Amino acid sequence: MEPLGQDDFAAIEGQLKDCVEQDRRYWRVNDVKCDAIYTAKTYEEFADRVAAAHLRPLERSDYKKKKNSGWNQYASREKKEYDE
């Protein structure tokens, strides 16, 4: 039997990272299911909550990253061209 090489360790590390992420995802969805089973009023609401389990709430820092640009950048560009 040959000793394990660097490629083998890299493959094992990749598999471990994938398994850990799958485990996190499973428990996150499971927690949402356990909460929604008692609080959801309809099956559609339950299904929507489970489908959105991967989302996280916005934090204050997310709002600071917002660009201060108009909704329609092309309309504002045309306005500038007409003003000149």
Rank of each mutant, 00 (worst) to 15 (best):
I12Y: 03
K65I: 08
E44K: 11
N30A: 11
T42H: 11
D8E: 08
K67R: 11
T42W: 02
L4M: 14
R25G: 03
N72F: 08
D62P: 04
E78Y: 07
R49G: 05
G14E: 04
H54Y: 15
P3S: 01
N72M: 04
M1Q: 11
R28G: 03
K64L: 13
N72K: 15
K65S: 11
K67P: 00
D7A: 14
D48F: 10
G5F: 00
S69I: 05
V50K: 00
L58V: 01
C34M: 11
R77Y: 14
A36Y: 05
T39N: 09
V29C: 02
R49L: 01
Q6M: 14
A75V: 08
R24N: 15
R49V: 00
L4Y: 12
V50F: 00
L58K: 12
E45A: 07
A10F: 12
L4N: 02
E2I: 13
E84T: 15
A75C: 14
E78V: 03
V20E: 08
F46E: 04
E13R: 08
A47Y: 07
I37T: 15
N72V: 03
S69W: 13
P3Y: 01
W71L: 08
R56W: 03
I37C: 15
L4Q: 07
V29A: 10
K66L: 10
G5N: 11
E84H: 07
S61D: 12
S76P: 09
K41F: 02
V50P: 07
V32A: 05
Y26Q: 04
D18H: 01
V20I: 09
D18K: 04
K33N: 09
S69Q: 15
D31A: 08
N30G: 12
N72C: 01
A52E: 10
V20L: 13
M1W: 07
Y43V: 11
R28A: 13
R49T: 00
E45S: 09
Q22V: 02
N30S: 01
N30K: 00
R49S: 07
Q6D: 13
K64M: 07
K67M: 02
T39D: 08
E59C: 10
I12W: 03
G70K: 15
F9S: 01
K64H: 12
C19L: 06
G70V: 09
Y43E: 06
N68E: 00
T42N: 06
A53Y: 06
K65Q: 06
D83E: 07
P3H: 09
E81R: 09
D35P: 07
A53M: 05
A40S: 07
A10C: 06
Y43I: 05
V50M: 00
D7V: 05
Q73I: 05
Y26T: 08
N68V: 00
R25W: 06
E21H: 01
Q15E: 05
F9I: 10
D35N: 09
D23M: 13
L16A: 04
G70F: 00
D23K: 06
K64G: 08
Y26A: 11
E44T: 12
Y74V: 13
D62H: 10
D23A: 06
K65G: 05
K80H: 06
F46H: 01
A52H: 12
Y26P: 03
L58D: 13
V32K: 02
C34Y: 14
A10D: 14
E78P: 04
H54G: 13
G70A: 03
K33W: 03
E44Y: 06
L55P: 04
R24Y: 10
P57G: 02
Y38E: 08
R49W: 04
D83K: 15
K41E: 04
Y38I: 12
H54V: 02
A75P: 09
